[in-house]
Design a protein around this nucleic acid. Structure first.
Length: 282
DNA sequence: CCCGGAACCTGAAGGC
DNA sequence: TGCCTTCAGGTTCCGG
């Protein structure tokens, strides 16, 4: 479930509580979540290490450890990190106890989340594109990225090798605000559309972080509280629900296998809209 | 290279 | 109530 704003929220709220703490115990209830090294070695090498930093890269969380190694987590669709959360949870896949008695839980109903313990973090996150809230992500960069790409603009936004951290919800939200059809070929965006999309991407991600992430489904902050970012979303995620701007029923399509919601009127460019806008006779 | 589809997993929600 | 289908905020692999 979590995208960049949700992961960043977790990072910000977790960092002050765990910085300097030392792993006292690690239990793995779903060893398949450990991608590298083997689960038992992962556990052994983690215990005793102190946390000296917590960083986010795209949708990955990177715990910098005293040995110089890095513990990397990806929550995928349903993962949660909960700190000292008292309620029972039948989806706990890993549990990290610290030297001060606090406990970090990795809960993940769908078992899709992944963990790595590596010396070289680039072996996991090295292939990611730039941070969309970083200084290297400029309107010019976005324009260059889209130039010559025939893929639908939404597919480009979701490609983590091109830009890191945008997921299905924030992609739909950015395209709605920029009034661009999700299936429009990236190379066909006008200069003005690129500028609007750039502004919309930063706006939705910054808003998401400011409101502590979106709890559409099961997202929780490390203290168990929900985020509020979804209250500020504009595209309804329901086919046929009215567009908040023009009242037209929202459409749903599958794009690269992902549920995609958009307003056929505000975001134009649908086949019917293009046909009806094209003079059929001369 | 591009794309669609399936796989990895479970649970919630909707239709009947 | 219960059964069945569809969908879910991600990533990766495989075949055409």
């Amino acid at each position: 479930m979590p995208e960049l704003p949700e992961i960043e929220t977790i990072r910000r709220e977790l960092l002050p509580k765990i910085i300097g703490r030392r792993f006292a115990g690690v239990s793995l209830n779903w060893p398949k979540a450990v991608r590298q090294p083997a689960a038992e070695e992962f556990r052994r090498r983690l215990v005793g290490q102190a946390i000296c930093g917590l960083e986010r890269r795209g949708k990955y969380l990177i715990f910098h450890l005293s040995s110089g190694e890095a513990l990397i987590l990806h929550l995928r669709m349903s993962g949660l990190l909960l700190l000292n959360y008292p309620e029972p949870d039948r989806h706990i896949r890993a549990s990290f106890c610290f030297d001060d008695g606090s406990r970090l839980i990795f809960s993940d109903p769908r078992k899709l989340g992944a963990m790595w313990l590596v010396n070289d973090e680039d072996s996991v996150v090295g292939g990611l594109g730039p941070e969309p809230l970083g200084t290297s992500f400029t309107p010019q960069f976005l324009g260059e990225l889209l130039r010559g790409r025939s893929a639908p603009i939404k597919a480009v936004l979701l490609d983590q090798r091109l830009i890191a951290g945008i997921g299905n919800i924030y992609a739909d939200e950015a395209l709605f605000r920029a009034q661009i059809h999700p299936q429009k070929s990236a190379r066909d965006l006008s200069e003005d559309e690129v500028r609007r999309l750039y502004a919309a991407i930063r706006e939705v991600l910054e808003s998401g972080i400011a409101h502590k992430g979106a709890t559409m489904r099961n997202f929780r902050r490390p203290n168990g509280q929900r985020g509020d970012a979804h209250c500020f979303f504009k595209v309804p995620r329901g086919k046929g629900r009215p567009c908040p701007v023009c009242g037209t029923p929202i459409e749903r399509i599958a794009l690269r296998g992902r549920g995609t919601y958009f307003c056929p009127r505000c975001q134009g460019g649908s086949l019917t809209a293009m046909l009806s806008a094209t003079p059929l006779t001369s």
